[in-house]
Design a protein around this nucleic acid. Structure first.
Lengths: 220, 220
DNA sequence: TCTCTTGAAAATGGATCCATCTTCTGAGAA
DNA sequence: TTCTCAGAAGATGGATCCATTTTCAAGAGA
């Protein structure tokens, strides 16, 4: 066969929509019409419906009965609590992952950070940053934990992007310092320091993000 | 209309399957065949597929491409980590909920505990216990947080039931003592004590549950 | 007797057509 | 001008039929 991957239509549709939501092409609040997606991607409405359910499970959109799917837009308190969830869950994922992290994954993490330090484009930065962190959790091998963490990243992705477009690159050096301290702790297999730097990283991000009320709808 | 609720077929199918999984009629490891469910519940396969996706989003089953849906069975480490996730997330849900808990909800929580102290049947106990805890989080009004906590309860429900069938009712008084201390802290609107008793409650449950390796598959 | 192969049965994935619900638009009256 | 209500258009939910994949059992060969 010349085709390398048969891949189901619903998975293909889900992949396209996932990318569009994560990179902001489909903004929060937008309604997603099944027929429009089906026509655009050359499939029938059925795999589109399946794809919407998948993305719903991934925290990227909400499905309301008889009213279709839409990307939710969150208020400031909601985003803040999602970040507090990250502060509690990701250290657990990291500590469970650390003992099983092999050298190849560690090398990939280090390489990702090198790319992060050289990239300018915000979308590329966000994608690499996400891949960097999820890679540090990849060895925990607890599906529920990894899926939950991914959902939190998915739901807050838009606000991270909006923040970076607003704040510009002047705080990038802080991210890099935190990432490199985290990598150092990982290389030393030190769960205490790894958790310390990770929590600090997420906490700082939350505070800087929350400090911009203009990112969120209907703030009194 | 005589019908009080029109309710979509997919939601109805999902409700039946959800109840069957939670009460153990469909055990972990079991494959769920779409056609069997469709015939049994008097619907076509399409709403069944939708229902399976919904339950997948709720953490009750996993869907593998071209291989259908099944209720996952977890090993001991997986259940332990799920409980550690609960220990970190539920205190956050409680603290975010506590300031918004109204008197009616508090009264319902107290009433649920009174029922818990009088019930004998394990399935009824588990349902009431679940309702009790989720009620304490119900005022946090963060959909993602409540859904995540519900998923953790869903995924571990089977092992809680198996544990109770094994351990019998002799530790029920501990549950009641912990619940009543938690209620007292809620009535005093004391987030510190409330978090303290809740974490203790979950930690003790985890330890007692994990102490029974015979509850889990393939433990060396 | 064990293993590999092959083919048939069964289950899932997808497409099209129809029913039902939502929502938007516009006309009419206060 | 504004509110209300009715009707039409559009979108979602569901049923049936077909295609593809998986799975399992039977048989041939070593």
């Amino acid at each position: 066969m010349s085709q390398t991957a048969p891949e189901a239509a619903s998975a293909r549709v889900a992949a396209v929509l996932r990318a569009e939501i994560l990179d902001g092409s489909i903004a929060p609040g937008a309604r997603i019409r099944q027929e429009e997606v089906a026509e655009r991607l050359g499939a029938s409405r059925l795999p589109v419906r399946e794809a919407l359910r998948m993305l719903n499970a991934e925290g990227l959109l909400v499905v309301e009965p008889n009213r279709g799917a839409r990307v939710p837009d969150l208020d400031r308190r909601e985003v803040e609590v999602l970040y507090r969830m990250r502060e509690r869950l990701e250290p657990l994922a990291l500590v469970e992952s650390l003992p099983h992290l092999d050298d190849a994954t560690l090398a990939r993490i280090i390489d990702l950070q090198k790319q992060i330090e050289q990239i300018d484009d915000i979308r590329d930065f966000l994608a690499l940053d996400r891949e960097f962190h999820l890679a540090t959790y990849s060895a925990c091998h607890i599906d529920h934990l990894q899926a939950t963490v991914a959902r939190l990243w998915n739901a807050t992705q838009h606000y991270r992007r909006a923040f970076m477009e607003l704040a510009g690159p002047q705080r990038r050096w802080v991210v890099n310092a935190e990432h490199n301290l985290l990598i150092d702790a990982l290389q030393r297999r030190d769960p205490v320091d790894a958790e310390r730097y990770l929590v600090g990283h997420i906490r700082r991000t939350r505070r800087e993000l929350i400090a911009h009320p203009e990112l969120f709808p209907d703030n009194e």
